[in-house]
Amino acid sequence: MGADAALLLLADSRLPAGGHAHSGGVEEAVRLGAVTGTGDLARFLRGRLATAGLVTAALAAAACELAAADDPADDPADGVELWRRLDAEADARTASPAQREAARTQGRLLLRTSRRMWPSAALDTLARAVPEGPHHPVALGAAGASAGCTPRQAALAAAYTSVTGPATAAVRLLGLDPVTVHRLLADLAPALDDAAHAACASLGDAARQGRWHALPGHSAPALDLLAEGHLTNPMKLFVS
């Protein structure tokens, strides 16, 4: 069940939440010559989905569950504490400071947009809990819950945006055939479903108590290095 149409809005690249200015490491990979065409782009996207994509999907699912459990009758201080802990889990799974910064910038902008689109007490609590901006998947999951999406749908949106943003960036930076690149994304569709499924399976039933240590923590050192290297590029077009 869940809100299918709201999911489409949430995952749409036209969602005005600043995502268009992030390449997810692709700009730096292009600069270094690691991504030069559709072949290595396909490998890049698959690797990104299997690591950062899966982790963000799980965090989004956890955030969606937490937001859905938000009860206005509860002590607001408890809500703030839980959101801070979930955001800290995201921090712990993001080794590169540059990537943390980019994730918080995107999360802050998404929170700003979603609070106007789908106002809710949970989003207000999240904004209060992490005033500098929560990690993007945390904001995405909370926004999903406010829009009526299920944790699985939030996870799917996170997995989806983890590859579509970089794919679009590659089209712009390398002048790739956009249909070829969308074919790559179509080929990834089953893997996106699998990632959303795995993300939800990792939640367990401890999440409601704020115990998220079982969430996946796959690292991708190459993405970390790309994120750090990107900051040193004086000619960069994308934020990350």
């Binding site: 268009h20 960036a169 960069k236």
Partner: peptide, 10 residues
Amino acid sequence: VQTGCCPHTA
């Protein structure tokens, strides 16, 4: 502000 190749989008 950085605009990711699309100044008008931003």
